[in-house]
Write a protein that binds this DNA or RNA. Sequence first.
DNA 1: GCCGTTTTCGGCCCGACTGTTTTCAGTCG
Length: 609
Amino acid sequence: MRKNGVGGGAAAPHRPHFSGLFLCKHEVPEGNILMTNQEIAQIFYELADMLEVKGENRFRINAYRKAADQIASHPRSIADVAAEEKLQDIPGIGKGIAGSITEILETGQLDDHRKLRQEIPAGVTTLLSIPDVGPKTAKLIWESLGLKTIDEVEFAAQTGQLQKLKGLGPKTEQNILAGIERLRARQAEPTRVLLGDALPLAERLLAYLREHPAVQRADAAGSLRRRTSTVGDIDLLAASDDPRSVTDFFVELPEVGRVHIHGDTKATVISHTGLQVDLYVLSPEQYGSLLQHFTGSKQHNIEFREIALAQGLSFSEHGFKREDGSLITCETEEAVYGTLGLPWIPPEIREAQGEFATARDGRLPQLIEVSDVRGDLQMHSTWSDGRAELGEMARAARDKGYAYIAITDHSQGLGIVQGLTPERVREQRAEIDQLNVELAPFRVLAGIEVEIRVDGSLALPNDVLEALDIVLASVHSGMRQDRETMTHRVVTAMHHPHVDIIAHPTGRLINQRERLNLNFDAVLQAAQETGAILEINASAERLDLDGEHARAAIEAGVLLSLGTDAHSVGGLDAMPLGVAMARRGWAEAKHVINTRPLDDVLELLNRTD
DNA sequence: GCCGTTTTCGGCCCGACTGTTTTCAGTCG
């Protein structure tokens, strides 16, 4: 788990930067400044960092961080929420922070933040991004040596100045130097790792651990288990009666580049690929509490422990402690939640977004499972930019157990690939018809991923689209349009009579390209009006919609579809990632059209045979 | 600063590991 992951109170000075997705000029009340959720959140993160360096009340600091998390992950524009005077409906936002948000929206800044910034140079809070440098160390270095940048701290460490400070020694000085090196490596290779890349590495490491004779169980936890789109590190857990032998074994694995921490029950290593991997080991009878604790999220755990405290129980990874000091251990997570009278809560929704209240009321959703998915509704073949023949894709999908798929090659109008012309759509249809004879009862739907042109019109004529079984529409070019234009463009396409699904609706490519500048509320409204379906694109670099957007869609009564967007046979394996996003969005099978039998899907699309 | 099926005040999650220390502070998860 990365810095400030589960349970921590430490700073996380740098947050991934989001696009201006949630901002819409014409919705902001007169006189307000254009601010994205991320920009607003950033002010509170910085405020928290500065207060921490000052040594202020840690609960106040945590309140700002919690509010910033809520703001950053809110699926709607905070400016819109503010305009509706609903800010205090958001958990963690009370009168004070609501007032601060209003001030930020009106003036573009926060006076408390501005004043503190005069007191504490911006550079000092950036020192918090160095591993092993927290607020106390940053303050010490700044006040005693006057250092304000990472470069200055690096030089001071190289020249032995840091170890002269009270409380620091030569080891710490070396750790800070190594930390700066790690930070630089991260910045050169900036990104968080894709869920789809981290999962295989975690599985390899787990396979080693499970072979160790003293290991009874091993699982991934943390954000990987919650299936966030990207992860900052990998958290692994093991059950063993001899934990030390397991951490000893772990730090010697071939994947390990460097050992950072190596204790009796925990070890932290850096893999050769630069990813941090943490291992925690406890006895089998404590495995349930270990799993719960390290799955997080941090805020979920805090709420969980508050509920425990209200029942006179203190909870940690070791189990529940009664007030008399006696321990209740839990071998399973079901027992952990059950001890507080709660049903087991799926990891994907442990984000402190209302899951406890829902669980208490017995209203937890029956989340969609991979096995619910009967067909894959987006994939490509050599007819456009895919690497496998249409027949190979179909047979591979059939062999995965699907009842149907949609072949959705690109249309003309997409410059970089050989998109289908009306003529070639008809040729492809003949091949699909032939395949359907061969593969029956498995069914290949003749589909298309048609370009939404810059004005919202589609790149194929109506009669061509009408003859297809399913039409996906998406934006691949002209992506820099302003918010109003882009929103109008997508909404116009949704109103097209032959468009069934908007593919990868927000257009993000994780770590590569920001989301489209789109008013998502307006997209949801258009979906309500037209019945258009929004895709959850399962390819690892898209995962679009993500959980937050999927949940907003479901709450708006909008239907979803799942497609891998596979461009090869191997690409079909991405479906569990898409299902994970759906689960993070609290989706049940009924919310996703391709959990339904083919006839029901065709009826929904008004294309019954 | 937030929050309330004990509370509008007085709480706010809990423990391992490391380094610099002679008993603990800082950082992290």
